[in-house]
Design a protein around this nucleic acid. Structure first.
Lengths: 240, 240
DNA sequence: TGTGTATGCTGGTATAGACAACTATATGCC
DNA sequence: GGCATATAGTTGTCTATACCAGCATACACA
């Protein structure tokens, strides 16, 4: 069942196996999975290892525990992984749309005061400024401006941005951690209306996202304006 | 340092102690905390117990680990607990505003098909429908409609809703788990414009929230329309 | 009939130890 | 000086075991 020689940790293999069984409906929502002691025998590992696997699945929301009773399958989620930090591209694919891109500009300029404050840098330091129209099934979906501190990655090119910026960031040795998002509603001005092919004063969903590495350094500020008629922002939140 | 007789688990006491030290700036952002083995000696517990405490703090985002190097203090967050499931009241208090309430209606009616589907009930079952204007510093902030399955809590009154609905739900023995939120932009119609004291076709932020108990049953659907000129939705998200 | 109580299940907490994988520093050699 | 290598320290994974606390059921007794 498990491969003890694999470089993948045992608890991870157990997680994957349980996930697979849930997907295959071997375990159904509301039912309990085998007890920790039973899993210990099934997988021939210690109970602590089983607990580490089950804990991770509880954390993900796939399972929930009840002391004295057992561990149960949670109800299926409305959409796969509503939460989580994803790119526009991933987001659109998940919605079953074909993501696209139109680069409007790619420049390096002085940050200026408000931007510098958000990105944790000095006002006279430089940032990349990338403007794009984001397409879904070839229709304009959002107008997006991305700011990245020049000092963090002086080798950045248009190609990196157009392919997978997050992969590039991680290749540089940074680890992407969390992001803070502010979401607001607004009305389209002339420039936005033209770029997004919508009427003047149509409703827009504005999203500003500041993304941090795991050690807490901001490395990206994205300001987006989504067409309200075509986009809904989905999020999943937890108590505590 | 720790109380081994306390009913509070040791790992929890260790968590609290580390939190306190971070708050007291004994440990500063970017610095490492003592190694797991050092903490083992400091608290006179086993290393697994230390790891359980540290893991929880990593989960909360207060610390981050680097293999082979150590465990470090994360940067302070922009706002306390941006994520997390909170009520309008808590939300407004955190923003430094005085929350208020104007009840428009409180009825029990048949759910109807689309609502029933979201709440996981039959179309001919009944729901509470509560309409309110939510105030912040005595100014209208949002128009809110809440739907609750009648069968789940047949004793519900206006008072419960107006005081602390979540506290009432938990007193009934339910445990509040997660919520799914959809956020979109819209323009104010006549009814909304009047209730919120804004111009017709002003921008609104629409939030629909479906809240679940830990065993996966939906117990509340809230549809809100926030004034875009006064409200921004803040969220924190994590990679994976 | 009903009501304690014993029993055996569940997850929750905790110990002590082991080895692996990774990182930084110091050491010695060329 | 520069470069490989040893070494000590870190987190990551895993074992085997123990006892506690909550829950459900069966059973004996009043």
């Amino acid at each position: 069942m498990l491969n003890k020689q694999s470089p993948l940790p045992m608890y991870y293999q157990i997680e994957e196996d349980i996930k697979k069984r849930i997907a295959k409906q071997e375990f159904l929502p509301g039912e309990s999975i085998p007890s920790e002691r039973a899993l210990t025998e099934m997988y021939d590992v210690s109970r602590m290892t089983v607990r580490q696997a089950v804990n991770n699945l509880v954390q993900e929301g796939l399972l929930y525990r009840e002391k004295g009773k057992g561990t149960f399958i949670a109800e299926a989620k409305m959409e796969q992984s509503l939460s989580g930090l994803t790119s526009f591209t991933e987001d659109m694919k998940r919605r079953g749309l074909k993501p696209g891109n139109k680069l409007l500009s790619f420049e390096v300029k002085e940050a200026g005061s408000p931007l510098a404050k958000k990105l944790g840098m000095e006002a006279d330091e430089r940032v990349y400024e990338v403007r794009r129209v984001r397409l879904a099934d070839d229709v304009p979906m959002a107008l997006e401006t991305t700011y990245i501190p020049y000092g963090l990655m002086p080798e950045l090119t248009e190609e990196h941005i157009q392919q997978s910026f997050y992969a590039y960031v991680e290749a540089l040795g940074f680890t992407i951690g969390r992001a803070e998002q502010a979401i607001e509603a607004a009305l389209a001005d002339e420039y936005q209306a033209e770029a997004l092919e919508i009427p003047l004063h149509a409703a827009l969903l504005g999203i500003e996202r500041l993304t941090f590495t795991t050690d807490g350094r901001p490395f990206e500020l994205v300001q987006s304006a989504y067409r309200a008629d075509r986009y809904k922002f989905l999020a999943e939140i937890h108590r505590n």
